[in-house]
Design a protein around this nucleic acid. Sequence first.
DNA 1: CGCAGGATGGGCT
DNA 2: GCCCATCCTGCGG
Length: 202
Amino acid sequence: MTTRKLAREFYTHPDVLTVARRLLGQVLVVPARNGTRVAGIIVETEAYRGPQDRASHAYGGRRTMRTETMYRIGGTAYVYLIYGRYHQFNVVTGVEEVPHAVLVRALEPLQGIRRMRDRRRGTSAHDLTNGPGKLCMALGVDGRLDGADLIGDRVWIEGGARQISPAAIACGPRIGIDYAGAYVGKRWRLCVRDEPAVSGRR
DNA sequence: CGCAGGATGGGCT
DNA sequence: GCCCATCCTGCGG
């Protein structure tokens, strides 16, 4: 497989929606023991667009210990705990001090599938990574990876695995943000059409 | 199959 | 003290 770790410039693009779109088809990788890897192709993302976005943790420019990661440079991992039990993996985008992020909502399992099944014992083979909490469990992502540099070697994203044409991308409203007022209807959830691994509906 | 409800803990008002 | 960028279980059709 001829893929390569995405460089800083991929993440520092000024438009978070563009980065969310370009992330589709790229490979999220977490290294395991003995040089092996657990990895999946990104098939669903959601953009969280700066301080104006009411659905964002950084809405209104809010800065707390948790959200501080969102203000770092594009190419930083933002991982947080949700509902007391699950983690969410996000990619910070853009320049420092401007809180853009992309939530990775679903993967198509690619490597380390046995390890994924071990971590997701009790669920069926097709439910390994089709949701933002599920993929974190399958890859072993937790709060320790918050703030990790995606140009580093703890977690990263590789390009070139699959080309997704614009026509193959579907968009719809984001999930679980009913409190977000005028931003509830923004179609900032992106997914690969006809991809069985996406979460929820098309 | 679909849907209702519970789990569970850090962050924020 | 309430709110989550969720998932799983159990129950009914």
